[in-house]
């Protein structure tokens, strides 16, 4: 929601909307602080590592939300953005420099380059055709990562990626890597918030609503799709970089189409078009999967069921439900 204009005599409705806006900001700032404070609350190392992975998936899911939620492009190959970056960052870190900023920039640029090239083609399409085409492109990258052994390590992937360094100092695994991830998540969230609230972001919503009409009022639909695709892949690339440092390696399975399906399900379950929802979805997914797979064998079945029910009955996801409750707490009309 755009910041309210500075008008002194607000109507009661506008004033209530404004107080909700303020409350939303307080809530977001509070959750950001909470996320940063986790290591100091006596969480176990295992919990910290798991939460690191969850936040990385959160960044990745946010990047997919830009396409699915804000532009109406359902990508079934979004593993490509993440997986490709794990290789780019991993190979760079192993051979040249493990500096976090340099590796991230390399991964972002590599992801942007591939996104631009594929975007020249995929932006011609939308709907089902877009979904299947992105799946095909992702499979091409997967096959290459499996086959080109000398460069990617084949099915074993990259092994022994060093720890990242930050300003010349090595980042310890565990709490330090967690803080780095959490800070990156917050920066990404704030930047993407700016993107979706900008006139450019509003134009994307127009494309989502109706591509033909958007084109008819003079919007260059393909260019907008291309730009958001590149931004989305760059964000996915940030997630991939963090992931390769967390796992100290890259694996071709990060590029497999099932992974694309997982992240799509996470994003939709979390709530598309909210940026915040996909993060919730990712945290929920990583934790429930971890807690559940050991003692509950029907996890995959339940995940599929939850996804089907979400698509059928609550297309706005967890965030949609949360927002409805939130609006009831801060009603626009009393």
């Amino acid at each position: 929601m755009a910041a309210s204009p500075e008008v002194e005599n607000l109507t009661p409705e506008a004033s209530r909307a404004r107080s909700r806006e303020v409350a939303t900001r307080v809530l977001l700032a509070g959750s950001a602080l909470l996320v940063l404070a986790v290591p100091f609350l006596g969480a176990s190392p295992f919990f910290i590592t798991l939460l690191t992975e969850a936040l990385i998936f959160g960044i990745w899911a946010m990047s997919l939300d830009l396409l699915v939620g804000y532009t109406g492009l359902v990508s079934f190959g979004h593993a490509a953005s993440f997986g490709f970056a794990t290789y780019a960052a991993g190979i760079f870190a192993m051979n040249i420099s493990a500096d976090f900023f340099l590796s991230t920039i390399v991964a972002i640029l590599a992801a942007a380059a591939v996104a631009f090239l594929t975007g020249l083609v995929v932006t011609r399409l939308s709907g089902i055709a877009f979904a299947i085409l992105t799946l095909c492109i992702c499979q091409v990258l997967f096959q290459i990562s499996v086959v080109w052994r000398s460069f990617t390590g084949g099915l074993d992937g990259l092994i022994g990626v060093p720890l990242p360094t930050l300003f010349g100092r090595e980042v310890e695994p565990g709490e330090e890597l967690y803080l780095l991830t959490a800070a990156t998540l917050i920066v990404c969230y704030l930047l993407l918030r700016r993107v979706v609230e900008s006139p450019f972001g509003k134009t994307l919503l127009a494309i989502r609503a109706n591509e033909d009409r958007a084109a008819a009022i003079g919007i260059d639909v393909r260019r907008h799709k291309l730009v958001i695709l590149v931004i989305s892949w760059m964000t996915g690339g940030v997630a991939g970089t963090l992931f390769v440092f967390l796992k100290a390696g890259a694996n071709p399975m990060s590029l497999y189409w099932i992974e694309s399906g997982n992240i799509l399900a996470i994003t939709i379950l979390g709530g598309i078009g909210t940026l915040f929802g996909p993060i919730i979805g990712a945290i929920g997914f990583i934790f429930i999967r971890d807690q559940v797979t050991t003692m509950y064998r029907a996890w995959q079945f339940s995940f599929g069921l939850a996804f089907v029910l979400a698509v059928l009955f609550m297309p706005s996801g967890i965030a949609g439900i949360a927002e409805r409750i939130w609006r009831r707490l801060w009603p626009a009309r009393s």
Partner: peptide
């Protein structure tokens, strides 16, 4: 609804059924 929803729903179904088979 849009055709893309059939893709999403059936993807979820394939997850469910694969999970059920394993279970």
């Amino acid at each position: 609804r849009d055709e893309i929803y059939t893709l999403l729903v059936t993807f979820g179904l394939s997850f469910m059924i694969t999970g059920a088979i394993e279970y």
